[in-house]
Nucleic acid binder design. Structure first.
Lengths: 187, 187
DNA sequence: GTTAGGATACCGTCCAGCCGGTGCAGCCCG
DNA sequence: CGGGCTGCACCGGCTGGACGGTATCCTAAC
């Protein structure tokens, strides 16, 4: 059973958050309207008011994934020098892998969308393509920069599925090394 | 609708294969016994003869993931010099990313398991942990080696979800660069 | 300044259909 | 003859979704 967190804030956000929690805790296949509404502390009718169908809930989850990603990256930029040419790439590493709970939720949103309707991933596909276009234009070593983003993705996914093999120390080591490779790809 | 491939071979394998195809084509949420049996060209009773419950099917899918992984790596070792100290790591890159259809199916198996029952991932978690232990023992630069495996995972996952942004040329470039980083992590 | 009326945000119930699973009579091939 | 299926009927539970109701707030006419 997924606990009903009595988080305040607008119901819409609580529902989305609850959906991510459900996926992370019991799997995407058990993402049902009933379970989500209970986990969000909202009646089923209330859920249906905000998301008139399951598909619309999943679509919102996909968009939330994109938004969370952008937000994480944007807020991480603050901690990196503006002179650093690999700033964007480093913000991606720190932003996504730095805030643990958020990255797990993001992976959950991605999983949920993927499991239920592959066509809903289009939003995400577009955003990733755009990001890689920027990367190709700015980096000196595109392949190396791309590998960094792939590794970030891989780690995020493994942690969402709780199959990551790293100790805390190893994880830190990996993040540090990723930052180093980010530097290398802009030299 | 997922086509019924009239592949020969033992029914058990055909069913597993069909399940992977269903997940890849319509998503893990629509992995139902009816759909899988139809896709495998087997009656529902026949499916239940081989896998007495859905859980047992998913468990077999998880084990198949592990097996496929080992098989891909093992067969890729043939193409790499035995003197190469990064042989295992390189085999992981070439083995998994080299055979496109297989890697997509592997991602599908992982997705299906993750979506339906997170506890079934334990087999996979164990295998990954074991692999990383070997990696930590053999490599000179563990973090860098770990990043290579993460990137391989990330690319596999993105391709399974069809959100990979790379052109064929870029993909090749990425694989080549991964091999280079593999070398670096053993110097 | 009070009251009518509409929009917003939600509740609770009901239902048709799908899903996993059972049971079983048969058939086909070695 | 018997193991490995097929084909089919059936079931109970769960799922997505429809629907009618309701409490709260905003607006604006009187």
């Amino acid at each position: 059973m997924v606990e009903a967190h009595a988080v305040p804030g607008p119901a819409r956000d609580r529902i989305l958050e609850a959906a991510e929690r459900v996926v992370a805790e019991v799997g995407a296949a058990r993402l049902t309207l009933d379970v989500v509404s209970q986990a969000a502390g909202v009646s089923k009718g209330g859920l249906l008011y905000h998301f008139p169908s399951k598909e619309s809930l999943l679509g919102a989850l996909a968009q939330r994934y994109v938004q969370s990603m952008e937000q994480c990256i944007e807020s991480a930029k603050g901690g990196i020098s503006e002179q650093d040419r690999s700033r964007d790439l480093k913000a991606c590493i720190v932003g996504i892998l730095g805030s643990d709970p958020r990255s797990k939720a993001m992976g959950a949103a991605l999983l949920a969308t993927a499991a239920n309707d592959l066509t809903l991933l289009e939003v995400i596909r577009e955003r990733i393509a755009e990001y890689h276009k920027e990367l190709a234009a700015s980096s000196a070593d595109f392949a190396r920069a791309a590998i960094v983003t792939l590794a970030v993705d891989g780690l995020m996914m493994r942690e969402s599925l709780r199959i990551s093999p790293f100790t805390d120390a190893q994880r830190q080591q990996v993040v540090r090394e990723l930052l180093k490779i980010a530097d290398e790809s802009y030299r």
